[in-house]
Design a protein around this nucleic acid. Structure first.
Lengths: 231, 231
DNA sequence: TGTAACGGAATGAACATTCATTCCATTCCC
DNA sequence: GGGAATGGAATGAATGTTCATTCCGTTACA
């Protein structure tokens, strides 16, 4: 079990990508015709509008929620016409799904890149926590966005799959560590919920108090949560 | 400091109620004329419609979110006409605020009633956790609702005040315990965020996995989180 | 000049809220 | 006691607004 878990995690970051199964790529991501794509090099890619739209939408979804945000508002903030959004995304729903996947994968890559599969659990835990902290600090709204849309009904199957793959990876790490007697026994889901929830709770407490989270806060919290889950 | 905290908590549950300050009672809660109210005794109160509306709305807000829920949907589920809702609530926004306050106060009463101010922190912690668990188990959607709307922009000043009063109470307990050397030092907000977040995380992990949370899960989680915050 | 990208007014659907009407428990009058 | 009158509660079709999406005239580029 332990070995399986480690093997599963070795190329963890890579495994988050879409499974190349049947009917996998048509879902709802891309518009009928993606603009320009023109030059192999040079020409600044026309995708900077796509990015502007995604950035604006992400911010607004965080501020007001999905249904609370009007598409023309997104267009305004992105500095494009309302119609332009539909050149890049099939619908508002496709847009939120594209953002979700992009951010979830970005999070996965930051957190899981070169994961030290052979290290002791104490070090793995510290690394995971601190990488999550780094991501959450650098991309605060992205992190809040992911939390907010964690299980929204407008997420499609592919977006849910990205989430599930990530959860599965963590679960294997936890089960392995439990088997080695380095983590408390008990339902792995509960332990992970505890840790992830606590992490979110720290961010939320600081957002609420309009305070920034310092390195010291993160270290304190990390120490606390390690003591929470260690065997 | 310790004494202040204890004194502040002695009648904790009572302190959550609205401060009778100026301009406090006109906000947006009640309809122009509350129906019937007819008999001093006997006659079943016409408020069962009000309750039906609030119950239906709470469920739908949890399922679909505030903006994702249409008022006629609420009316349908409550078994009343759409117009009836406006006899009891000034607007959709007033409705969600009424629900928020009701549930937040209910939570506060369950958790803080007869709080043992003189007990050692270990026991206070266990009691708080287990009472929260009780509330969350008995009123799952109420708890999810409170989490979901924690900082929604459509909450009015009074609703936010209810939330703040509760946070303030907890903060005093934490600061007192820290002063006595029973909890880890550090920003009380971070410690509270850690614990509350972890609590929510456990619930979420179980909702996600479509699993019910047993007494054993709650005890494990409680033990974990005590070890997280104890000095 | 021709082609593709763009903007933003136009469109139709869905929404929150209103209001003219119905319903019914109670009161009043004989 | 019985029948008519009363008025507040309830209703749901109607209303005006807002929204996601489309459409087409304009712009930018090759």
């Amino acid at each position: 079990m332990t070995l399986a878990a480690d093997a599963k995690t070795r190329h963890a970051a890579r495994q988050l990508e879409r499974t190349p199964g049947p009917a996998a790529s048509s879902a709802s991501g891309e518009p009928p015709a993606r603009p320009s794509q023109t030059a192999i090099a040079g020409k600044r890619p026309a995708t900077d509008k796509r990015e502007a739209i995604m950035t604006a939408a992400l911010e607004l979804f965080v501020e007001r929620g999905f249904f609370g945000t009007a598409v023309p508002e997104i267009a305004d903030r992105a500095g494009v016409g309302a119609g332009t959004i539909y050149r890049y995304f099939e619908s508002k729903e496709a847009l939120v799904n594209a953002i979700y996947r992009e951010q979830k994968l970005a999070f996965g890559h930051v957190v899981l890149a070169d994961f030290p599969v052979t290290a002791v659990t104490r070090e793995q835990f510290r690394l995971l926590w601190m990488r999550m902290a780094k991501f959450a600090t650098l991309h605060r709204s992205s992190f809040v966005f992911l939390e907010l849309h964690h299980h929204a009904r407008y997420l499609d199957a592919e977006s849910r799959a990205v989430e599930q793959r990530m959860t599965a990876l963590f679960t294997h790490v936890v089960i392995g560590a439990q088997a080695r007697g380095e983590l408390k026994p008990g339902d792995p889901g509960v332990l992970m919920g505890l840790v992830m929830g606590a992490f979110v709770g720290v961010i939320r407490s600081c957002v609420d108090a309009d305070r920034t989270i310092g390195e010291a806060d993160w270290k304190l919290a990390e120490q606390c949560m390690w003591e929470a889950v260690r065997a």
